[in-house]
Write a protein that binds this DNA or RNA. Structure first.
Length: 850
RNA sequence: GCCCGGGUGGCGGAAUGGCAGACGCUGAGGACUUAAAAUCCUCCGGGGAUUUUUCCUCAUGUGGGUUCGACUCCCACCCCGGGCACCA
């Protein structure tokens, strides 16, 4: 006992607790007994709990450990509660960092990725997370990504995957497309800081997320209460539904010109529109400028605007700029001619890329019209106060729930809401407009001009055009034998063995698509694959998925609140419409945990503030690391890493170990405590009560509140109480001692599973704790958990002036009598009249005196 | 600008209408030891009174309100963090 312990912590022999030995031992036993392997079984209640799959870069740090520990506690508690638990892990293995690292270290992305996966796996196993490792997936393996391709083909068949020209950030040095976050310093390439990024139009593949706009929005309602509100709000904003109308304004005096279609949510203000404003990128702009007197001047301004729009980041603070095209549009409601302008604040990507400016009732329009001296006309008067005067307005009146229309011909006197209905109907009847709902949500561009991703399974044939690769030819395998240099554009495009192929239709020569898929494709459906990870006939067996889904608890970072979760929801709906699954939403309950910070910022390799999981496991053991990440802060909050505090968790586990070590031998062959029959001594009663009360509160902290930190505090308190009652041999029978120590062990099990197993064994159990159930209290036990005597604080005018000890359940009169005898209470209450008494049984007595 | 969080000792945090500061960290003092480590014990929000025992008082970002009673509920404001933002 108490020899040198082998950990570095504290530097000396604390107890016989040797986490390295204990943890290795139980991890081996769990693996041998296949404890965490589960199968779909409709006769059992299921629980699918999942942590977001990691991108394996480098080695896991304590941020990862915290995330997976939270998930592991949930999985283990549910197992102890009798659920058939699915708890898998895998790797988000495609992506740009692997390519960059490969270029830097002249290796292959696969080598770099697989090394990292091995490292991650080692550390995750070291922490004893209860994963079913048989279900492990790696998204860069053909066995996985062939199903990305398969899904893509199904979407292609249904018109949900299509090709279109789209504007991208292009670095002429990299010869490739850059993501928005790779455009830095006001439009320069992140790798070539002296190179200006160009805006180019290239053909790209898109998935039609917009086909599901309404469902993606409406189904958020199902998630209320089980998803964090802010995630729901972020998704709502992202989808950005907007109800309004599209209206066509003819261009006056320009033969053959298409009318300009504008989008507005306030068709009721159309009599107040004093200009039509086009986005700089609007196709009509060039045409209008051709015949314009101000052509030269205008083209200069236009070029400046179009270039400026590349710098997305300072768009928000930009001054409103614009110019007159020299042409006029005709308001279809009153046939008034209004000038056509170009304005930098009108976005081509939203609505129709053209607006009607109603300066009196839209702040942006007002600013623009004031700047350029355009007319302002009031068409809605507010219900009270001074009537608006166009000349004096500095703030637009944009309330649409109140007011009455003026200066609006036949619509005068209507409320804006009535006017919207009537005017939309009129526009539809006259066929120059219609009511329409538009969304901010755009289709999902999935093309990436990169190597390390899923090849898009189509070929281009001179004769047959775009031809889908047949299912029987899947997967289209990423060529392994390539050399990455980072120069010269798409690597796949310059690999002839990959590019050159034959057309599946005509057998003639054809070229393969060389774009690969966005890695968000991989993560959009990976959790389905876990249900049937090695199926080589289909992405998964629907029966298995229908058993396990939806995911009961999904745990991950807030950074995935929009894209990953939105794409996953989209994918789910597509799969449902393909008949593969039954549910409409993949994730029943979502939890977003806080980050682990060091020096106030998230741990990251580039900042050099990482605390490695491996390092902590070596120094303190996995259980201490797990316990600390749970204890230091509630799981939803950020956690500032502290090397000093973790010592406290280490000390606590040693304290528990020593306690049970001291009693184990004497208790190994002792039977269970008989709650009903045997009378208990005062000391026994007190210990049992404390134990059961702790259990009740810990259970609620685990199940309903997720307050792991206070659950641990409660178990610490219990441990302190037991120590305070030592030596237990005096006055506490062995079977009672056993009851108390076993309960403490079981309560720790989800958080520090290795230690708990060891203690369980020391207490004489030959079958593992993994077979044990979470303890429920029987009727007699609940009775024992109740207090016999309570101390009731007595307040006088809301301030505590004394306390009285009474039997639990004592009545008001008895408590009052004792209270008045208390010197502190008497001092404040004597000689005064008691106006009111508030008595809460077993909790409080408050005397209001005058 | 709009929408979410959050603000409690030296620090992490607990208490969701009923004794504010549980539990832990740090710090101080003590016991054990040749010594150290480990372990164990005591103290640890501010101010005041009383001195050796307790009492009073202030205190949960600020100011109001509701209530017998507010960290907790309501109103206004300040500060910090995050998200969205010419979205027509």
């Amino acid at each position: 006992m108490a020899e040198q312990n082998t950990t570095g912590a504290g530097g000396g022999g604390v107890s016989g607790y040797d986490p390295q030995k204990v943890e290795a031992k139980w991890q081996k036993r769990w693996a041998e007994a296949r404890v965490f392997e589960s199968e779909a079984d409709p006769s059992k209640p299921k629980y699918y709990t999942l942590e977001m799959l990691p991108y394996p870069s480098g080695t896991p740090h304590m941020g990862h450990v915290r995330n997976y520990t939270i998930g592991d506690v949930v999985a283990r508690v549910k197992r102890m509660r009798g659920f058939n638990v699915l708890h898998p892990m895998g790797w988000d293995a495609f992506g740009l960092p692997a390519e960059n690292a490969a270029i830097k270290n002249s290796t292959h992305p696969r080598t770099w990725t697989n090394n990292n996966i091995a490292e991650f796996q080692k550390v995750l196993r070291r922490f004893g997370f209860s994963y079913d490792w048989r279900r492990e997936i790696s998204t860069c393996e053909p066995e996985y990504y062939r199903w990305n391709q398969w899904f893509f083909l199904r979407m292609l068949e249904r018109g949900l995957a299509y090709r279109k020209k789209s504007r991208v950030n292009w670095c002429p040095k990299c010869c490739t497309v850059l993501a928005n976050e790779q455009v830095i310093n006001g439009g320069h390439c992140w790798r070539h800081e002296d190179t200006l990024v160009e805006s180019r139009e290239i053909e790209q593949w898109f998935l039609k997320t917009t086909a599901y706009s309404d469902q993606l929005l409406d189904d958020l309602k199902q998630l209320e209460g089980t998803w964090p509100e802010r995630v729901i709000v972020m998704q709502e904003n992202w989808i950005g539904k907007s109800q309004g109308a599209k209206v066509k304004f003819a261009v006056a005096d320009l033969a053959g010109a298409e009318p300009i279609e504008i989008f507005t949510t306030r068709i009721d203000t159309i009599y107040g529109s004093t200009a039509v404003i086009l986005a700089p990128a609007h196709p009509l702009v060039t045409r209008l400028l051709k015949g314009s007197a101000m052509r030269v001047e205008a083209e200069g301004k236009l070029a400046k605007m179009r270039q400026a729009s590349v710098k997305a980041e300072d768009l928000a603070t930009m001054e409103k700029e614009g110019f007159f095209t020299g042409w006029y549009a005709v308001n279809p409601f009153n046939n008034e001619k209004i000038p056509i302008w170009v304005g930098n604040f009108v976005l081509m990507e939203y609505g129709t890329g053209a607006i009607m400016a109603v300066p009196a009732h839209d702040q942006r329009d007002l600013e623009f019209c004031r700047k350029y001296g355009l007319a302002v006309r009031v068409v809605v008067q507010p219900p009270e106060g001074e009537p608006l005067e166009a000349e004096k307005m500095t703030t637009a009146f944009d309330e649409h729930m109140q007011g009455k229309l003026v200066n609006s011909g036949p619509y005068n006197g209507l409320s804006p809401l009535d006017a919207i209905a009537k005017m939309t109907a009129f526009a539809e009847q006259k066929v120059f407009g219609r009511g329409e709902t538009i969304f901010r949500l755009k289709d999902w561009g999935i093309s990436r001009q990169r190597y390390w991703g899923t090849p898009i399974p189509v070929v281009y044939c001179a004769k047959d055009g775009i031809v889908a690769v047949p299912d029987s030819d899947l997967p289209v395998i990423l060529p392994q034998d390539v050399k990455l240099t980072g120069e010269g554009g798409s690597l796949l495009a310059s690999t002839p063995e990959f590019v050159n192929t034959i057309c599946p239709k005509c057998g003639g020569p054809a070229r393969r698509e060389t774009d690969t898929m966005d890695t968000f494709v991989d993560s959009s459906w990976y959790f389905y694959r876990y249900c049937d990870a090695h199926n080589d006939k289909a992405p998964f067996d629907s029966a298995k998925v229908n058993y396990w889904f939806p995911i009961d608890q999904y745990i991950g970072g807030i950074e995935h609140a929009i894209l990953h979760l939105l794409y996953s929801r989209f994918w789910c709906k597509v799969m449902r419409d393909l008949g593969l699954i039954k549910h409409a939403e993949p994730v029943a309950r979502l939890f977003t945990q806080g980050m682990v910070l060091r020096g106030g910022v998230a741990m990251s390799k580039s900042r050099g503030n990482v605390v490695g999981g491996e390092e902590m496991a070596q120094k303190y053991g996995a259980d201490t690391g797990r316990l600390y990440t749970l204890f230091a802060a509630p799981p939803e909050k950020d956690l500032e890493w502290s090397e000093e505090s973790i010592e406290g968790s280490w000390r606590f586990l040693n304290r528990v170990y020593r306690l049970i070590e001291r009693h184990a031998e004497a208790l190994a062959n002792v039977g269970n405590f008989d709650f009903g029959r045997s009378a208990v001594s005062e000391k026994e009663r007190e210990l049992i009560r404390k134990t059961y009360q702790t259990l009740q509160r810990v259970t609620s902290d685990f199940e309903t509140r997720w307050h792991f930190n206070s659950a641990i505090a409660l178990i610490m308190e219990l441990t302190n109480e037991i120590y305070a009652q030592e030596p237990l041999e005096e006055g506490v029978r062995p079977e009672v001692r056993r009851e108390i120590l076993e309960m403490a062990t079981l309560m720790l099990a989800p958080m520090t599973p290795h230690l708990a197993e060891e203690l369980w064994e020391m207490l004489g159990h030959s079958d593992g704790l993994w077979n044990a159930k979470w303890p429920y209290l029987g009727v007699e036990q609940v009775q024992l958990s109740q207090n016999v005597e309570v101390e009731i604080p007595v307040q006088v005018n809301g301030r505590v002036r004394g306390r009285v000890k009474v039997a639990a359940g004592a009545g008001e009169e008895e408590v009052l009598k004792l209270a008045l005898a208390d010197p502190g209470v008497a001092h404040h209450a004597n000689g005064k009249r008691i106006v009111k008494k508030i008595f809460v049984p077993d909790r409080l007595l408050n005397l209001v005196v005058s």
